[in-house]
Computed example of a mutant assay.
Amino acid sequence: MMQQFYPQVQHSYRFELNKDMHFSAAHFIPSEDAGKCQVMHGHTYYLNITIGGNELDSIGFLIDFKELKNLIHDKYDHSVLNDHPEFKNNFPTTEKLAEQVCKSIQEVLLTRNNKPVCLQVIVRETPTSYVIYRPEQEVVL
């Protein structure tokens, strides 16, 4: 795989983890405004996930890379995105996919004692097109 450099998210965490992965899935956007994307078609999606945190777990991880891969790859690989419940009321656009990946990861991170945070998810749909999703950060006063 060719090394890819992605836009960085600004943060003040001591640790930053980045995980690249890919999966293959089909989707369609059921709207006349979507043009050719109205018809089911597939992509090999390439993702980069950025997680930050100040504390490591008992074995020295923010989270195990394998756990991140299994969470996303097992869920979406070789599936039709439209069939997933999180896209029941949302078209499975690349933007919505990036948002849902972030939400799925953050749900798992919230269960961890060291409380890492998903800072950014980048989803590349084609070699020339990608989306960056960054959840709103809470402001602590």
Rank of each mutant, 00 (worst) to 15 (best):
P85D: 13
I59K: 14
S58M: 11
H43F: 07
H22C: 13
Q8H: 07
D74Y: 15
Q38H: 09
Y46I: 13
R14N: 06
G60D: 09
Q100E: 04
T126Q: 05
L110G: 05
T94I: 08
Q10S: 10
D83A: 14
F23S: 03
D33W: 04
F5L: 10
R112T: 05
T50V: 14
L71D: 04
N82Q: 09
T93K: 02
V39S: 09
V39K: 12
E125Q: 03
E107I: 05
V123S: 01
K66E: 15
E67F: 11
L119V: 01
A25E: 03
N89P: 03
H78A: 11
K96C: 02
N54D: 15
L56G: 03
Y6S: 04
D20I: 05
Y45F: 15
Q137R: 12
P30E: 15
A26N: 10
H73N: 13
Q120Y: 01
N18G: 08
F5R: 10
N70K: 15
N90R: 11
H22L: 11
M1D: 06
D83H: 14
V140T: 13
I59F: 15
L62F: 07
F23L: 13
K66F: 12
N82R: 07
N70L: 14
L71P: 02
D64E: 14
N18A: 08
E136D: 15
N90L: 14
K36R: 12
V80S: 05
L81Q: 00
K66T: 13
S104H: 12
Y76W: 12
F65G: 07
P135H: 02
N114I: 04
N89R: 11
L110E: 15
L141T: 10
R124K: 15
E136L: 14
L56Q: 05
N70D: 15
S31P: 06
K115W: 03
E107C: 07
F65Y: 15
H78P: 12
F15A: 03
F65E: 09
L97D: 00
Y45M: 05
Q38T: 10
E138T: 10
L110N: 14
V131T: 15
K103G: 01
N54C: 11
M21Q: 06
E67V: 14
F28I: 03
V121C: 00
